[in-house]
Amino acid sequence: MRAAGLHLGLVGLLLAAHFVLPAYHHGVLARVMVLAAYATGYNLLFGYTGLLSLGHAMFFAAGMYGAGLGVRFLALDPGLALLAGVAAGALLGLAVGLLALRTAGVAFMIVTLMFAQATHLGILLAGRWTRGDEGFVLQGPERVVLGLDLGDAAIRYLAAWALFSAVLLLVLRLVSLPAGRVLVAIRENEERARLLGYDTRAHKLRAVVLSAAIAAAAGAAYALLFGYVGATFASVQYSILPLLWVLLGGAGTVIGPFLGTLLMFYLIDTASGLTPAYMLVAGLALVLLTLFAPQGLAGEVRRRLAPWLP
């Protein structure tokens, strides 16, 4: 109950923020909500299932290019393009999961890193359609769905809010279901979970596919809402960032990824005003979090104050 209240409260608060925030922060929050949806999907795999992927940018990019190329070359409307992006991410997740889940631990990290690298390079190689690093812009009628222009600031915010809320509540529901509890059991002790009769390989594969689909939904939404599709979003950096956001906010908590994304976005935003070496902040944060606060913000709150936090 408290958990549902807290998360519905956050959803309500973000909706209320639409009406009061000044333009700059309104725009930032729209972006943060899309990226937080990405982080929430990442957390499902990393925080709840205990699988550390270093290649989630490939799923984000699958969604982004699935939607972006669909709009550009198949003239899909944004609604269908979103579905195409999610399908692309889920399929890639299935393929990568089937292979990568034969490994564990450090090997799993490197295998996902390599698949993501191959995806990134593949996007560059297909420059004729993807326009490589330069990317391409979606504009005008390409971003209109049901008469709504996703380029409009208000509609963009509300669409981002709808996506984030759906992902947040989906994950909140999932982790309270038996299937979600099994993921935690796998994270804590896979061998024991298997000998309780759970097909851990199948559960992990489902987690990879769902996590990839959520990441792809965020990638597709990013392309449609912000009108830009580029290979940067497939680079290693976009695999590291969700890890950083989740570590900061609290791995294995439902609300943590949003908190981490929000805080880190403003930190990097501030730093980039001061120096071109703004990723220094990300590096320092990764080292300090690993050393001193591996539980992250929400994890510390759960440990000290609110053990009920899901």
């Binding site: 990290m109 990723m279 590096g283 320092l284 990764l286 080292v287 300090l288």
Partner: peptide
Amino acid sequence: IVATIGLLY
């Protein structure tokens, strides 16, 4: 791995 990613940046 996480710490050395931080070190990298």
